[in-house]
Amino acid sequence: MSLQHKVWLITGCSTGFGRHIAKQAIEAGYKVIVTARKVEQIQDLTSGNEENTLALPLDVTNHEQIISTVKQAIEKFGRIDVLVNNAGIGYFSSVEESVEEETRRMFEINFWGLMHMTNAVLPYMRAQKSGHIINFSSIGGLTSFPTLGYYHATKYAVEGISESLAKELIPFNIAVTLIEPSGFRTDWGGRSSVKTDTQIPEFKESVVGQMLKGVQHSGGQESGDPVKAAAAVIKVVETSKPPLRLLLGKAAYQAATHKFTTMLADMEEWKEITINADYE
Rank of each mutant, 00 (worst) to 15 (best):
I179L: 13
T196Y: 01
A229L: 13
E180S: 02
S192N: 15
S182H: 04
K167P: 00
V208H: 06
P242M: 02
P171E: 07
V237E: 02
V207E: 14
K204G: 05
F203E: 06
Y156A: 01
G190E: 11
V227F: 05
S206C: 07
P181W: 07
A166S: 15
E180P: 07
R191W: 08
S192V: 00
K167R: 14
Q216F: 04
D197H: 09
L212V: 04
P181S: 10
V227Y: 10
E238S: 12
A157T: 08
E159G: 01
T196C: 06
I200R: 08
V215M: 13
I200T: 12
L169E: 08
P226Y: 10
G220T: 12
V208R: 03
A166L: 07
G183N: 12
I170W: 02
K155H: 05
G183Q: 05
V227H: 07
I170T: 11
G220L: 03
I170G: 00
E222K: 01
K241I: 09
P242L: 09
S218H: 08
S240V: 09
L212Y: 04
E168I: 06
K241A: 12
K241F: 07
F172K: 01
S218I: 15
F172Y: 15
V233M: 08
G183W: 07
N173Q: 09
S240D: 15
K195I: 12
